[in-house]
Design a protein around this nucleic acid. Structure first.
Length: 277
DNA sequence: GACCAGGTGTCCG
DNA sequence: CGGACACCTGGT
């Protein structure tokens, strides 16, 4: 990765990095394209802007903010090209998927934000998920920038100020009770996100499954996107269809131990972009 | 206006 | 334990 700083703003360039692909990969829902072509990125209680220019990614933050947060957020110290090189040469489908989505990285996002976000995601399409997350943040998250209307994702404590009825008013539907209950567990310390970082994948999975409204799919998404367990392999309707059509029912997760989650993103992205046309 | 959306808890057999 | 089934609401 190369880096430079101009007028107090940092830029970087690296292989396997594409803002538009990441924004559309379905792992984050608060990365939105602005009218001027740049992206606004909100993560937990931080925000910045990003724009691609001649192969460089220009961020709207200082080098020190980049080093202390965004460098890790974008997972810039992981070698994604090696994932591509390790794909079975005879697996033409996966080769093509990597080619289509090789600018995607697995972001290092906040576990709490991921847990609530993916509880919201069930039976919702991506625009609806974005809308619901935004509504929740606006309702009880800290205001980060008044003129741009940017709000942090609410902490457990902030979210716990909302009643079940309040949540129901945010078009969360039957998920309101899941969020209400999970928030209470988080405030009480029954869910301890920091302590859970030290757990092994299987143990962490069990803890997540014990949360009300969290099943296998959501738990895997929290593992992958919130705890950066890149071996986790969430199976949704898209991946399920890919498994049936290209892998005789099940993707060889063991063959790609440790990074099957990244491959899942390439397949999800390429399948969705192909379907759009 | 159907039909479906990155699913999960519950209730059956 | 595996398989239907209902569930809130908004988007194509």
């Amino acid at each position: 990765m190369n880096k430079k700083e101009e007028n107090g703003k940092v830029s970087f360039r690296t292989d396997c990095f594409d803002l538009a692909q990441i924004a559309d990969s379905g792992q984050c829902f608060r990365m939105t394209r602005q009218n001027d072509g740049s992206f606004l990125i909100v993560a937990a209680d931080r925000w910045t802007t990003a724009r691609e220019q001649d192969g460089w990614i220009q961020l709207g933050c200082t080098d020190s903010e980049f080093e202390s947060f965004w460098r890790h957020y974008f997972d810039l110290d992981t070698d994604y090209a090696s994932y591509g090189r390790n794909i079975d040469p005879s697996d033409e489908y996966l080769q093509a998927a990597f080619k289509a989505g090789s600018g995607i990285r697995i972001l290092n996002q906040d576990p709490w934000e991921m847990l609530i976000t993916f509880i919201i995601s069930q039976r919702k399409n991506i625009p609806a998920i974005r809308q619901a997350v935004e509504a929740l943040s606006k309702r009880c998250g800290v205001c980060l920038c008044a003129e741009m209307g940017i709000y942090a994702f609410p902490t457990p404590k902030e979210l716990s100020a909302l009643s079940l009825e309040d949540l129901g008013g945010l078009s969360l539907g039957y998920r309101a009770k899941y969020i209400y209950e999970t928030t209470r567990q988080a405030v009480s310390g029954e869910i301890d996100f920091n302590a859970w970082k030290n757990l092994g994948d299987d143990e962490l999975m069990q803890r997540l499954l014990a949360c009300y409204g969290v099943g296998k799919k959501v738990a895997n998404c929290v593992l992958l996107f919130g705890y950066h367990r890149t071996g986790a392999f969430p199976v949704d309707v898209w991946i399920d269809r890919i498994q049936r059509e290209h892998y005789n029912g099940s993707f060889p997760v063991k063959k790609y131990a440790g990074y099957a989650g990244a491959l899942q993103q390439y397949m999800f992205y390429s399948e969705r972009t192909n379907r759009k046309v």
